[in-house]
Nucleic acid binder design. Sequence first.
DNA 1: CTCGCTTGCAAGTGCGCGCTCACTTTAGAT
DNA 2: ATCTAAAGTGAGCGCGCACTTGCAAGCGAG
Lengths: 200, 200
Amino acid sequence: MAKRMRETTEVRQKQITEAALQVIGQKGINGATTVEIASAAGISEGNLYRHFRNKEEIIKSVIDKIGSDLVAILAAVVEVSAPLQKLEITFKRHLKYIEGNVGIPRTIFSEETIVANENLRARVKNTILMYFQGIKQIVEQGQRIGVLDTEMDSQAITSMFIGTIHFAVTWWLMNNFSPKLTDDAEGLWKNFARAVTHKD
Amino acid sequence: MAKRMRETTEVRQKQITEAALQVIGQKGINGATTVEIASAAGISEGNLYRHFRNKEEIIKSVIDKIGSDLVAILAAVVEVSAPLQKLEITFKRHLKYIEGNVGIPRTIFSEETIVANENLRARVKNTILMYFQGIKQIVEQGQRIGVLDTEMDSQAITSMFIGTIHFAVTWWLMNNFSPKLTDDAEGLWKNFARAVTHKD
DNA sequence: CTCGCTTGCAAGTGCGCGCTCACTTTAGAT
DNA sequence: ATCTAAAGTGAGCGCGCACTTGCAAGCGAG
């Protein structure tokens, strides 16, 4: 055994959360057993329970991390003035972010997490809703200045935005991460932009 | 115990497949244990294994049932001449079909099924691909006669078609089936249609 | 230095899962 | 009526899981 390195709970929680996200990315939510997570975090299984009350708390922590990452993605474009460019940057950054963290879609869209556990589902729902509304605001801004089609429902455009990403990711996951997600980003974006920009 | 009703393997396989789909709809793939499936099918757990070699075969059977249902949905519109109307009917029927069979999205888009098991993933992938290409053909037909935007990639339009449905379903699942999925169908379709029809 | 609190670990414990097995019941063929 | 193959059963097995426990060791406060 390597030398014991004593760390504070705060540090360990962060390590465990990141380890969990990584394991979920590799093996799915089911594959993310407490043994696997502990091993990925470089600590013993028992030690997990010093820093988290149970596995559910670990998953909650993962969801919260994802939420704050998404907030950061949205926040990064507030300075950009053109709404369409905001959307483009967000679109591509979202795909890039997911490509680097496969665990994210596997957590957020895991039926298992969602169906089985009321608390986790509520958390995921809030995270998605928050992101959805962030996008929707940009869309409405775009409609106000006449760049985006004003005859379309902002809700519908937002659904299409996320839906397009969502399905692209799903397909990418199902094809063992090939081709690269970001390789498709440009084409996907161009087509989406054409679909929702003003037509008259 | 109720009276023992002896049935042929063929009948039982069908019953078990439908029971499995129903249980998955209620409790997710993880909740669909052999005990639950057997109970929903009204037979003993041991008897499951008279008709299927193992649980994986049951899930395979479920996937195949979904595949043939989707084929039926696509086949139902071959007689319709207008491509846009074909898409509209398929769109609405797809949502209606899912609303009546929650187990379908939970099977098809279950990360667990997909990640963990190579065979199942291949099967699901083929099913989605088959459906995708069915839609894509209609889209290309629509582009050929100039109803759908010819400057957009048919692949992208198809992705948007399925992505829109996919996300709507995901959101509906996360909100405990409210509001009714088919209530949104009209609005979703109208916006999608505006997005992809010809603009010049 | 040593006390006390927290971090760390290895070896459990109990439980639910997929699956098996020894045996019984059923129904059609002879 | 009798025989046989298949359908049906429920007890139970082994395994992997989340989680616990008893004890060792690090570290700051006095």
